[in-house]
Design a binder for these strands. Structure first.
Ligand SMILES: [Mn+2]
Ligand SMILES: [Mn+2]
Ligand SMILES: [Mn+2]
Ligand SMILES: [Mn+2]
Lengths: 218, 218
DNA sequence: AATAATTTTTAGATTTGTCTAAATTTATTT
DNA sequence: AAATAAATTTAGACAAATCTAAAAATTATT
């Protein structure tokens, strides 16, 4: 089965939204794919015909098994290309998302499997997100929100949730990236901010908003 | 300027046809982009508005300077990706064209320039075609058709003109690829076929049709 | 339970790229 | 120089993906 770029973007967005919201709504999806609710309804009907979503008008929609499989293939491509861009072409990790957004739609399965081999089957992309293997399986990591870390306990950054340029710029300033070692010195109750010691950097204070977007392994 | 996949395919095809035919016709272009003459006319009007072609209805059309520049950018991408696929992902040279046909439309200029660096600025793609640099300049090679080679004179294969799978399969059988050393032992006048000694292979006879598609440097 | 607000779907247009069939222009024969 | 053939363009239609505005359904509020 080969799908259009639009169809693939919808499928992928539904998958990501399902991971966070118990109910994915037309408006939510419209925002995610940068379009209007009416267009989403049109597409849902199309995806239903292609058996990629279960769709009950006015009620709900979810990915079918085939839809989920398709979503994981697109996500696999996206993250493998991101890994390639950062680790082979020396892009910064906040420059790759947009380009991967295009590359994820290149259709060849053989290409992506060879790329996977060329990169030595990476398990995580540059943002710390797990890369599905060719069967759609992803590694699971026991990780905690930075905000919940016990005091003075060393931990390793494993995932950045918010991947906006604004967030990534800020993290670059603090020299925080995937794998960075850090620990919490103290917590400020007033605004929920935390003072952290980041590997090879002077102590810094991270706002609650920032800290909540950083996940760590211990 | 960003162009659609269709527009880019038309532009690239016009460029390639212009290199071979003194006059590119609507029918010729229609065949090249796998469509009908009427669709070509539609697209020519669109490309004229975008100042990519000079178009005189019923008379002629040619690429403008901007059109040529655009064509060379697409060809640069196509050939760099082909080089990547063969030299980094170990694809066979007859498997890459189709995939590059998609990859050539990825828009990022930064991506292609980094890819170029990663590959060490290759001058020729796996089929021997020159890769335009970021300014659109291509290396020129003094090459002769295999059929015109002086007898017993060693030469090196530098370009395969017909890049169809049929041709490439045949060349794989003879173990001929870019860089292969060979010489002509004798010519058969009757059908224009040639007996060649190919590096590390027993003598073989190539039909005129095959030999005419092989170019060499001396 | 009725009304208001919100969400979702439908109806009807629009843009892009394509097609077939008909009309027009150019080229080739007679 | 007509007539015929071939190439090209125009006209009108269609599918995909989108939009705006209106209608319908659902949810929240009084
Ligand atoms: Mn995308
Ligand atoms: Mn990522
Ligand atoms: Mn193409
Ligand atoms: Mn090539």
């Amino acid at each position: 089965m080969n799908f259009s770029v639009s169809e693939e973007n919808y499928i992928k967005s539904i998958y990501h939204l399902q991971a966070v919201h118990q109910q994915v709504t037309t408006t939510l999806l419209a925002e995610a794919v940068q379009t209007k609710a009416a267009s989403v309804t049109d597409m849902l009907k199309k995806l239903q015909v292609k058996k990629l979503v279960h769709y009950k008008p006015y009620k709900s929609f979810t990915l079918t098994e085939a839809g989920t499989k398709t979503a994981l293939e697109i996500i696999r491509k996206h993250r493998l290309w991101e890994y390639f861009l950062v680790n082979k072409l020396q892009f910064e990790w906040n420059e790759v998302h947009e380009i991967a957004e295009e590359l994820e739609h290149i259709s060849s399965r053989e290409l992506i499997n060879r790329l996977d081999g060329f990169l030595d089957h990476p398990a995580f992309d540059p943002h710390g997100d797990p890369i599905p293997n060719s069967k759609g399986k992803m590694a699971e990591l026991k990780q905690n929100n930075l905000i919940d870390l016990p005091l003075k306990k060393m931990a390793s950054v494993s995932l950045i949730k918010d991947q906006s340029n604004a967030m990534l710029d800020l993290l670059k300033h603090y020299k925080i990236s995937i794998g960075t070692k850090l620990k919490i010195n103290r917590r400020f109750e007033f605004d929920g901010s935390v003072e952290v010691k980041i590997d090879k950097m002077p102590d810094a204070i991270l706002s609650k908003q920032v800290a909540q977007n950083i996940y760590c392994t211990q």
